[in-house]
Design a binder for these strands. Structure first.
Lengths: 208, 208
DNA sequence: TAGATTGTTAATCGATTAACAATC
DNA sequence: TAGATTGTTAATCGATTAACAATC
């Protein structure tokens, strides 16, 4: 981690702004006000202006923000002026779905390594990639210099694979296994778990 | 929404406690202290005690919490004393992966309806379910009384399908499409988007 | 009993919002 | 110019943490 000056909660909203701006660019729009962004994001205009001002004054009083310019700035802030190569560990249904997912293109993300332990899967082709055995994980990660990984292995394998990824140089892990990974502070971990989200919502549905 | 007394951020942590307690029960443990839970979750012991105390005093001074009892209480709070039926709209790779996902069993979640618009997919069998055409969405949701939905359709279809779901009675939507849905306040929406998480982490990876 | 750990209060910390001068 | 909207400050709001009496 490296929170330095800008709060992590601010950073977490930047990709959302990026997504909305991309959508608006696609719609052919050229400028946007914090009020427009507010309506599209559900966040307050005040908060959006404050978030952006952590990184500089990107707007013009009276006119708002240039979509093109703001996109460019956000991409730079998020280190998207390059492609980040990603390894996927666990090529089950979910790993396969992620490998085929079109939404990574143009977002600075490219899946370049696939690993599994199942002999029926190892050696098979998924998209344009060959699935390698998890035995070669360290070697391949080191060779390729991959720093990000997506973990879609069964819960019992997750922690030990995560440790090995970190050992091999991975510094950001997107974890789909339903377990809280315990890793050193210098590793970024994000957790995706539909069960947690669904149970969260169940609370509000009451019992009727 | 229905925040009443307990902050939403507290509710959002309950499923995580549940997950950890389930894991500990599986390990054969019987009691747990807020300190143990802290170590497994990465949250502070103080925060955990405060979160739980919103719902009552579940522990015993000097001993901690009974895992069994706490599990039971959390399940009740989250309305898990029943099975919540869920519709999946969009049976692509991701929708298919979710339908096959084993992690919903025993968590109060059951996928019971599948919809798609692609003639190659409509009518096909996925797991034990038949994929229906999205034309029948309202009719089937109403008939079955389903209140929760998972949205795995392309981004351009997401908002209009979401509107139709709400119209048909759905009150909780887990959205996998990369767009912010605009829905009435009485509908719960949660968003899962790996791109947002990966871009968030890219910030911290710097540029080396 | 002595030790451990809860439940809760008050203090601290941090994030959001409101307001408005600056300025395009 | 007049109107609109930013960037920023101060006020408010809410969440987390520290501390400790209660008590098992």
């Amino acid at each position: 981690m490296n929170e330095a000056a800008v709060p992590d909660i601010v950073i977490s909203r930047l990709p959302l702004y990026l997504q909305i701006l991309n959508q608006m660019a696609k719609e052919g729009l050229h400028t946007i006000s914090s009020k427009d962004l507010s309506e599209r994001s559900g966040l307050s205009a005040s908060q959006i202006r404050k978030d952006l001002s952590f990184f500089g004054g990107f707007g013009k009083q009276g006119q708002g923000y240039s979509i093109y310019h703001l996109l460019e700035q956000l991409q730079k802030i998020l280190n998207m002026n390059r492609i980040w190569q990603v390894a996927v560990i666990g090529v089950g249904d979910l790993g396969r779905a992620l490998t085929h997912y079109q939404g990574f293109a143009n977002q600075g993300i490219e899946i370049v390594l696939l690993f599994d332990i199942d002999p029926k899967v190892v050696g098979s082709q998924v998209g344009s990639l060959n699935v390698q055995h998890t035995d070669h994980l360290e070697e391949e990660i080191r060779r390729s210099g991959v720093r990000m990984a997506i973990l879609t292995v069964p819960v019992d394998a997750a922690q030990s694979i995560a440790n090995r990824l970190v050992e091999a140089g991975v510094r950001a892990i997107l974890n789909y296994a339903p377990v809280t990974l315990r890793l050193p502070d210098f590793v970024n971990v994000q957790h995706i778990d539909p069960v947690l989200h669904l149970q969260h919502m169940m609370y509000y549905l009451g019992n009727d």
